[in-house]
Nucleic acid binder design. Structure first.
Lengths: 370, 370
DNA sequence: TATATTGATTGAAACGTTTGAACAACTTGT
DNA sequence: ACAAGTTGTTCAAACGTTTCAATCAATATA
């Protein structure tokens, strides 16, 4: 029970306690190849002592010597975005399989913290860095020091292949199309759309997908009913934006039977705005989101949405950087697009028979929710 | 641009490039006290080279030598619980002030991972460990190795002071009372309650607080309308539980004008169940949650709830363990209780005039939502 | 002139591991 | 009986820092 200065049990402690040298103890405890040559009796003895003393190898000393940290850095731009957690789970799963540990940092949507944590990750010698770029993600100087220290890097949620950074994102164009087609198939012909903020790279392709389907099917798209979120302060702001747009829609007096929102939080905001205006979802108006995050699932009515395969994307991200680590060569930046999936829940339904938005409809209660 | 074996820029690289010794470079770059004696010219020179090469001190080597890692371990039992993120933010804030970094691990609600990550944190020599025990948290062997390696530990969301572990949690009794009183003041006299699973330590005190107010005010508490969540699979399961209980309530045919749910997700589940049964919230029935997590805020109607000051709790947690680190002495385990706060939103309203649940009321639209 | 004092820099040991090479003590094959 | 393996263990150097003590000039004090 002698007081070690560090407060932690070290190999030396065990060496002394067992009578063997530090080397032997190390070989046994780290299960090095040489440990085959160590007498079984010795091994058992050393292990027993280690357990008794509560020995844990010092990751710092070990990594310093082995020159491998077995860690992956995850840098989330804003961890409060529900988008991040499933991604992290996926990454964790992928990393775990290869004996790697994720090291998570949350930049709290602050540019300054982001840069500082990026440095931290380099200093911590994470063998690769995965950036979770949820919501708006200002261009930052990812390239500089990361490059000089040749650490593989990958970004999820943004396409930065133009900057030679591998990227993983959902096929937003396909997602937008999927959403629009769903509404079309329910019978909607007049839809309102809330586009994402222009700084967000997801915005444009989703919008393109919507437009494509609109053109293919001959739905109406009233210019006055296409809104754009102001691109600002983190995911929660989408909610406010949605509420605001919904009010505008109602005020405009123009006819629409469905709203296609940029993402789930925005869609939830729309529901709020419509409800306040006395419009029922989905009986009087359908609403769709995008992402499939927890709040959508537990809202009433549950939100119909386009699901991003977040877990799978995280898994892929992990595997991708692990490959990069193994093949020390820099390698070409790759773009991985994943396929979104329609999740039909309760916020969408066929439009009321003779729908005009001005006069409040009295559609039947049982509006055939699926 | 010479290829260093490690791929990282080290002090030696800079020493060579600048013509000074490793010692001098270290002193300058780490801003050690001695650096005052180093000629200004030399300092500038060394710093310039460091910048040019993209030098980042190796946290491993540094910590090994300094015998301090300047990290705090955060071990979340289940990061997907929205409860965790604000806590982490608070911890991060508190840690940052003192130059500490949080190191986050997510046990994904798996006992096995939890233990393994706890070891990881010890190996990583985090100077203290903060456990985020959201939702059910099985007793685990926190004490063993942590104690042997004398790392301060603190748990948030559970009282383990009996086990000599400092704990921070909200005053659940007060919270329960706050909720019940709110409903009383709105005029509710017949309320249904959904208690938490019995394994969860929050359950009992919340229930006690409710009972106290019920007794004080003379409200009715119909035994048939008191439910208990089955304690199982993570926070999302509260939602299912809530839906299920709501159905039971309706089926029972007993009168009640408000539901007090164990937590927000459960409350959202109740809203779902009531809505399916044709009962409107809040016009026909009020619903309250507990915690104040994001989904409650963005649901429609927005959920009235009891807010836990999570950010503040995180801050307090950080400060508490930092104190423990400074005063190397073990110190008595402390219990910190924080005060919950009533957040009135749209899911609660005065009961309809002549309320009986069986015959659907036709209360006025404008049921005085505040 | 000898002795402190100061200023600028460096040598070398240490932090806790890992690991290639060496060593000693036994076998074995010839 | 001697080289050549085995088997079980240890030496010592290295990983990239930090920091105490030491060095060496040059200037100030006695």
């Amino acid at each position: 029970m002698g007081q070690r200065k560090s407060g932690h049990v070290t190999l030396l402690d065990i060496a002394r306690a067992s009578g063997f040298s530090v080397s032997t103890v190390s070989i046994v405890l780290s299960e090095a190849p040489l440990s085959q040559n160590v007498a079984e009796k010795t091994r058992a003895h050393i292990r027993a002592i280690a357990r008794r003393l509560g020995y844990h190898p010092d990751a710092y000393a070990r990594s310093l010597r082995r020159r491998r940290t077995m860690t992956l850095g995850i840098l989330a731009f804003d961890l409060s975005d529900p988008f991040c957690v499933p991604l992290m789970r996926g990454i964790q799963e992928g990393a775990h399989k290869s004996g790697y540990m994720p090291l998570v940092m949350d930049a709290q949507a602050q540019r300054k913290l982001f840069d500082s944590y990026l440095h931290t990750l380099i200093e911590r010698r994470t063998e690769a860095v995965i950036v979770l770029a949820s919501w708006v993600f200002e261009e930052t100087n990812l390239l500089g020091d990361i490059r000089k220290n040749n650490v593989p890097i990958l970004i999820v949620g943004r396409d930065l292949t133009a900057r030679e950074i591998s990227s993983i994102l959902v096929d937003n164009e396909a997602g937008g199309a999927l959403a629009a087609r769903h509404l079309y198939e329910l019978g909607h012909r007049h839809i309102a759309v809330i586009r994402g903020p222009e700084e967000m790279c997801d915005s444009e392709p989703r919008w393109a997908g919507i437009r494509r389907v609109v053109a293919e099917t001959g739905m109406k798209l009233d210019e006055q009913l296409v809104f754009e979120l102001p691109g600002v302060a983190g995911p929660a702001s989408g909610f406010e934006g949605g509420t605001h747009c919904a009010r505008q829609m109602l005020k405009s007096g123009r006819p629409f039977s469905a709203v296609l929102a940029f993402d789930d939080l925005t869609a939830l905001g729309v529901v709020r705005g419509l409800t306040e205006g006395g419009v029922r979802v989905p009986q009087d108006c359908s609403v769709m989101g995008f992402d499939d995050v927890l709040p959508s699932e537990v809202a009433t009515p549950a939100m119909t949405t386009i699901r991003q395969p977040l877990r799978e994307m995280g898994l892929e991200a992990a595997e991708c950087v692990l490959r990069a680590i193994r093949s020390a060569a820099p390698g070409k930046a790759q773009l991985h697009k994943t396929q979104p999936e329609l999740v039909v829940r309760m916020s969408t339904a066929p439009p009321a028979a003779q729908f005009t938005l001005q006069s409040k409809t009295r559609s039947k209660k049982e509006a055939s929710l699926r």
